[in-house]
Design a protein around this nucleic acid. Structure first.
Length: 853
RNA sequence: GCGCGCGUAGCUCAGCUGGUUAGAGCGCACGCUUCACACGCGUGAGGUCGUUGGUUCGAAUCCAUCCGCGCGCACCA
């Protein structure tokens, strides 16, 4: 393809993306050996709407690494996944189609949702709901892929996976079954963090603290029956609505104020329940009155106290967040005054925690058990990160994967991984060291990977959880709600003597955490697995170190006795101009496609590339414009360098040799930075060289290239420039994937993205290594700067031919400049250039006499 | 409370294994259209490198302290 008359960036994204697809430029060649392969465990973006700037930012980083590794000769294994399972999809489907899942409804074949979502949601069965999820995510995934292609991700698009796909289900289930066999996964009925709106258990990793208004309520417990009894024990609590669930009071064992109470019993206000006073080191004498109410369950500390002090359960908060019914006087709910307890509690039953609190404050005030007014405070409260109301702790049966006993081993695995940047390892270690329980992986939701487990139903109709029926590995994936355990018939489902399926699905991280095994076909393609695992790179953002990264380490440790990957590249966030994380809720997210169209994919890639590993980066269209200008400059200078007839010949001129030698040094530096995942630093160096190349070298050698000093001198310039351009295009190709490919195509048949990464030797082979030449370009640049300034001082343009220039500099510079005098003379537009050695650097310029009319 | 990152020109950032007058781009001011590029070229103004101490012949760079911003973990009666 010839050099175009007017090179342009417009439309390159479309034509080149099509060409890359047609030619299979990024197709993975699985015949290569493990040493030749570089495998990447790309984050599957959540298909719950649209991609945002943050995605474009971090995925570009990964693509730069991928392109670099590919050019270095690695066969890059770079599949793309879609995270289409889990709550975000469920929520999106609910809103998009106007439906709600009701698992009790039967499946309706060929169900079609209304054209426009109606206000009142339609209830649909679980299989129908899942059908709609699948339908919507397929559309979403298409849109995502188009955007990624437009951005220029060098993904092998024949290798995509979905986290709800059959492969993902099989691998998730198989790895779960194996954990069961090793007794690393288990099921238990226990107090669990619970979201009352989603009505599901959640894991420690999914919590976040939010500052909430609350109030200390000072209430009285009594040492003997009757509100007027002596020595009431005053405790402060932020959750008076849980008094009915109180099972003990607790203070620090050394707290002098409460020594006389330890081992005695006190009576709860309103409900008249006798509870013991206990000592425990976790009780903080500084906090409140120093003595706390233990309820089942107000917070995680309650769970600890309850477990360690072996207290009974009196649970009142239900799965939906309201207080459940209680019969006072019944076993476990003994009261000194059951009728009074009942009449008080009946006013609370059915209310949410918040409403119950307001009500019980009234009751406590009436009874005189509340001392003074509640004291407003602000305190951190645990929320499910996607939830709207504080978490409750509800006792339920859940699946867990063991983590707490393996903390040291996980830390060691973390040390086997190279972190980019290095300090992100500390976040991992902080998290592992702070684990306070095993990993709860079951969720009471619908759209996700089910547990491959059924339970026998005893003849009395009770579920026999202790003898689960585990699906055989060869049958996976299965759905226990439609598949039948081996040895049973479908008509035995739900019948005494029959079976029931486990109703839960796996947490989204429990399935995402197997992505390294999933993409490398751990269980179904051992040959591919051996060539790609452990993978080379996990790129991801820092906010999911505790979830995705951690859980992946856990799974690979247990299943493969290995790290899942040897490098973790942690990208930062995109910040809006106010330095806040960009997010949808703040309404400041820019549509990526519009951005790519406005500034070009190369412009956007440039902006992204400047944000180094782990660095939060400001959203800045100014940088995108600069990137676009850089890409444009690449096209234009290439047009000059490659234009005209090629003149091949030896590189003899010192200026040319010097430029190439500097370029060789640049190649070494840039390669070292990229090897170390410092793509931003490499870009800064390459870019700086490139502009210097355009503004100084090309300017100085231009005249010679045109043939002003003969054929040999022209050939030297032409050959040097072409080599330099070839090297620069290859150095810039990982960043400006489109512009570089476009230029490359003018003189090459293959893709620049499959071209060999440049080496110092290929340059020095042509340029030689003489030290004098290395200095030549430096001094020419210096001289040109001084002369340009001199011209500006005399108010003439840079291009104005002048009578005479006298340039003075030190001996070394002048000696060097004499070697390249012709170039300097031509570039400064004078017929008479006098080079003078002297202590001071300076210039005298004599203008041509004005031409008489 | 423990830990991490950041604080350099109006803006976005580089420099930070200590060493000549602290850099780049954008923005701003001024000037330049024949021969790759006006999506261009050039020149200029602009900074006591967050504070206060210390180490050193010499500190943006090392140490300590404090201040501010962001984040992680823990606590959360």
């Amino acid at each position: 393809m010839p050099v175009p008359e007017k090179p342009a960036l417009e439309g390159l994204e479309k034509t080149l993306a099509e060409r890359w697809e047609r030619e299979g430029t990024y197709r993975f060649d699985r015949t290569k050996t493990r040493e030749q392969i570089y495998s990447i465990d790309t984050p599957p973006p959540t298909v719950s709407g649209s991609l945002h700037v943050g995605h474009v930012f971090s995925y570009t980083h990964t693509d730069i690494i991928a392109r670099f590794q590919r050019m270095r000769g690695k066969e890059v294994f770079y599949p793309m996944g879609w995270d289409d399972n889990g709550l975000p999809t469920e929520r999106r489907v609910q809103n998009y189609f106007g439906v709600r899942c009701d698992p009790s409804l039967p499946y309706v074949p060929n169900f079609t949702p209304p054209e426009k979502a109606e206000k009142q949601p339609i209830s649909v069965s679980r299989p129908n709901f899942i059908e709609l999820c699948t339908k919507l995510t397929v559309e979403d995934e298409k849109a995502f892929e188009n955007l990624w292609r437009h951005l220029g991700l060098s993904v092998d698009w024949s290798m995509t996976y979905a986290t709800i796909g059959a492969d993902a289900q099989r691998v998730s289930q198989k790895m779960f079954v194996r954990l069961l066999a090793k007794k690393l996964a288990y099921q238990v009925e226990a107090p669990t963090l619970w979201d009352v709106d989603f009505k599901t258990a959640v894991a420690q990793a999914e919590l976040e603290d939010r500052e909430q208004p609350g109030a200390y309520h000072k209430i009285h417990f009594y040492r003997e029956p009757g509100a007027g009894s002596r020595e009431p024990v005053a405790i402060e609590t932020t959750r008076p609505e849980l008094i009915a669930a109180c099972v003990a009071l607790v203070a620090h064992p050394d707290d002098a104020r409460y020594q006389h109470l330890f081992g005695t019993e006190v009576i709860t206000p309103l409900f008249g329940v006798k509870v013991p006073v206990k000592a425990h080191a976790l009780a903080d004498p500084e906090k409140g009155s120093g003595i706390a109410m233990i309820c089942t369950f107000g917070d995680t500390t309650d769970v600890t106290w309850w477990r360690e002090l072996k207290l009974p359960v009196r649970a009142i908060v239900q799965a939906n967040g309201t207080l459940g019914p209680v019969t006072w006087g019944a076993p476990g709910w003994e009261s000194l005054d059951a009728p009074r307890a009942q009449s008080a509690y009946d006013q609370l039953a059915g209310l949410s925690s918040k409403k119950a609190q307001a009500k019980i404050v009234e009751l406590l005030r009436e009874s005189g058990d509340l001392q003074g007014d509640p004291k407003p405070i602000t305190h951190a409260v645990k929320f499910y990160e996607k939830g709207d109301r504080p978490l409750e702790i509800v006792t339920s049966r859940q699946w867990f994967i063991k983590t707490i006993d393996f903390r040291d081993e996980f830390i060691k695995r973390g040390q086997e991984i190279s972190w980019h940047p290095e300090y992100m390892r500390l976040r991992f270690e902080n998290w592992v060291n702070g684990l306070n329980g095993d990993w709860c992986i079951s969720r009471q939701r619908f759209f996700g990977v089910p547990f491959p487990v059924w339970y026998p139903l005893r003849d009395n109709g009770r579920v026999d959880y202790d003898n689960p029926l585990i699906a055989e590995e060869s049958r996976l994936p299965i759905d226990p709600s439609t598949d039948v355990p081996t040895g049973y018939r479908e008509d035995q489902r739900g019948k005494p003597g029959g079976f029931v399926g486990d109703p839960d699905i796996m947490d989204t991280w429990a399935t995402s955490s197997v992505s390294p095994q999933l993409v490398t076909f751990w269980d179904s393609d051992p040959e591919l697995f051996a060539r790609t695992f452990p993978m080379d790179l996990r790129p991801q953002a820092h906010d999911i170190i505790r979830t995705w990264l951690f859980s992946s380490v856990v799974r690979a440790h247990f299943e493969n006795n290995s790290v899942p990957w040897t490098n973790a590249a942690i990208s930062g966030w995109v910040l809006d101009p106010d330095r806040k994380k960009m997010s949808k809720s703040k309404g400041n997210v820019v549509t990526p496609l519009a951005m790519l169209e406005d500034y070009g994919s190369d412009g956007v890639r440039y902006w992204a590339a400047r944000g180094g590993p782990g660095v939060d980066t400001a959203f800045d269209v100014g940088q995108m414009k600069i990137g676009r200008k850089l890409a444009m400059k690449v096209l234009n200078v290439s047009k000059f360098v490659l234009g005209g007839d090629p003149q091949d010949g030896a590189v003899t001129e010192p200026l040319d040799r010097g430029m190439l030698q500097n370029l060789a040094a640049l190649v070494d530096e840039a390669t070292a930075e990229l090897d170390n995942y410092e793509y931003a630093k490499a870009l800064a160096k390459i870019e700086s060289f490139f502009w210097d190349f355009c503004d100084n070298y090309v300017e100085a050698a231009k005249s010679r290239k045109y043939g002003d000093f003969g054929v040999e001198a022209a050939a030297s310039a032409s050959t040097a420039m072409r080599l330099a351009l070839s090297v620069l295009l290859r150095l810039l190709a990982p960043y400006l994937a489109f512009a570089c490919e476009e230029v490359w195509s003018w003189t090459n048949s293959g893709s620049v993205h499959r071209a060999a990464w440049p080496t110092r030797d290929e340059i020095l082979h042509v340029s030689g290594t003489d030290a004098t030449a290395q200095q030549a370009l430096l001094h020419v640049t210096e001289a040109l700067n001084v002369i340009r300034k001199g011209k500006v001082d005399q108010k003439v343009s840079i291009g104005t031919p002048v009578q005479e220039i006298v340039y003075q500099a030190d001996d070394e510079a002048i000696a060097c400049l004499r070697l390249v005098e012709r170039d300097l003379k031509a570039a400064s537009r004078t017929d008479s250039l006098v080079l003078k050695a002297g202590a001071e650097t300076g210039v005298q310029i004599t203008l041509k006499p004005p031409v008489e009319a």
